[in-house]
């Protein structure tokens, strides 16, 4: 697999491992954008990431940050900082990493799936959606130019079991936030406390154009569920999505709105695709073959 030459993609921060994945004094190899990299851990929170050139020559040291239960790095010149997600600093939150899950599709298909409410009733039946309550009510999308993020606000959807803590169905309020081409998160109202939101993220490590690892750190308000239960809930939802994600054709994301036809419920996906097109990203994008 060749390393991408797309500087737009290379200039983003991406996760390359979860905290605890590399043992103290240990080492782990992985891949980002087709580039093999090596992660070594010399101390509790002291990681070194460097490229592993195919020809065996010595690698280039890459920038490292650890946040949101993940190790982040970049192959280029990062144009934006890691996002600020204040909920992860609130002391009473359950902050959980959930590890990573491999998905064979383009990173953008993953982001779009996460932004999408219309599939809840079909793919997460009786959990995040009910078969007889499929309507997606109008919501707003915005491109927040100060932070260069895409937001979807005023989203609502009826959910039979919105989270591990839910005992009954509820109209769940969502806010979605796309922080980079490879990271997305949501805020959803908490069952027991209407003033607070659970924060659930997906940070994507693009190993190649159609090969990803997804990390799902979350900061949850839930005093009762065990950490294992929280992770189990999140992973079981994600595995339902993976079957879909790996069977979309093409796996690369088409940006031409006549090739894949959206409807009103796809407003967030439309805004996301426009944003990707405007930044002229090429990695993982489907270019229609000339007829």
């Amino acid at each position: 697999m060749a390393v991408t030459t797309d500087s737009v993609a290379l200039n983003e921060w991406v996760p390359c491992g979860w905290l605890g994945q590399v043992p103290l004094g240990g080492q782990m190899d992985t891949v980002i954008f087709g580039q093999k990299i090596s992660i070594t851990r010399s101390d509790d929170d002291c990681y070194r990431v460097e490229t592993l050139p195919e020809d065996g020559s010595s690698g280039r040291q890459l920038p490292v940050q650890t946040r949101y239960c993940c190790i982040f790095t970049t192959l280029g010149e990062a144009k934006r900082p890691l996002p600020e997600i204040a909920e992860f600093d609130e002391p009473d939150r359950r902050v959980t990493g959930c590890g990573s899950v491999g998905v064979n599709t383009s990173p953008y298909r993953l982001v779009e799936n996460f932004l999408d409410m219309a599939h809840f009733s079909f793919i997460h039946t009786d959990i995040l959606g009910a078969p007889d309550r499929t309507e997606v009510l109008a919501y707003k999308t915005e491109h927040r130019k100060d932070v260069d993020e895409i937001w979807a606000i005023d989203c609502t959807f009826y959910q039979p079991a919105a989270s591990k803590a839910s005992a009954t169905g509820q109209m769940t309020q969502y806010v979605y936030r796309v922080m980079s081409p490879f990271s997305v998160m949501l805020y959803k109202n908490v069952h027991c406390d209407p003033t607070r939101n659970d924060a659930i993220c997906v940070f994507i490590q693009p190993k190649g154009e159609t090969e990803c690892l997804a990390y799902m750190p979350m900061a949850i308000v839930d005093e009762n569920s065990s950490t294992a239960d929280l992770i189990d809930f999140q992973q079981s939802i994600f595995l339902q999505d993976r079957v879909i994600l790996e069977n979309q054709r093409p796996a690369l994301l088409p940006l031409d709105p006549t090739y894949e036809l959206p409807t009103r419920a796809d407003a967030s996906s439309i805004a996301y695709r426009r944003w990707l097109k405007a930044m002229n990203i090429k990695f993982g994008i489907y270019e229609k073959q000339a007829a």
Partner: peptide
């Protein structure tokens, strides 16, 4: 994925989200 219904001639006749 989203339950969109297609008639035998290919025409989409129902979008459950709307």
């Amino acid at each position: 994925y989203h339950g969109w219904a297609y008639r035998t001639d290919g025409q989409c006749v129902e979008i459950p989200a709307h």
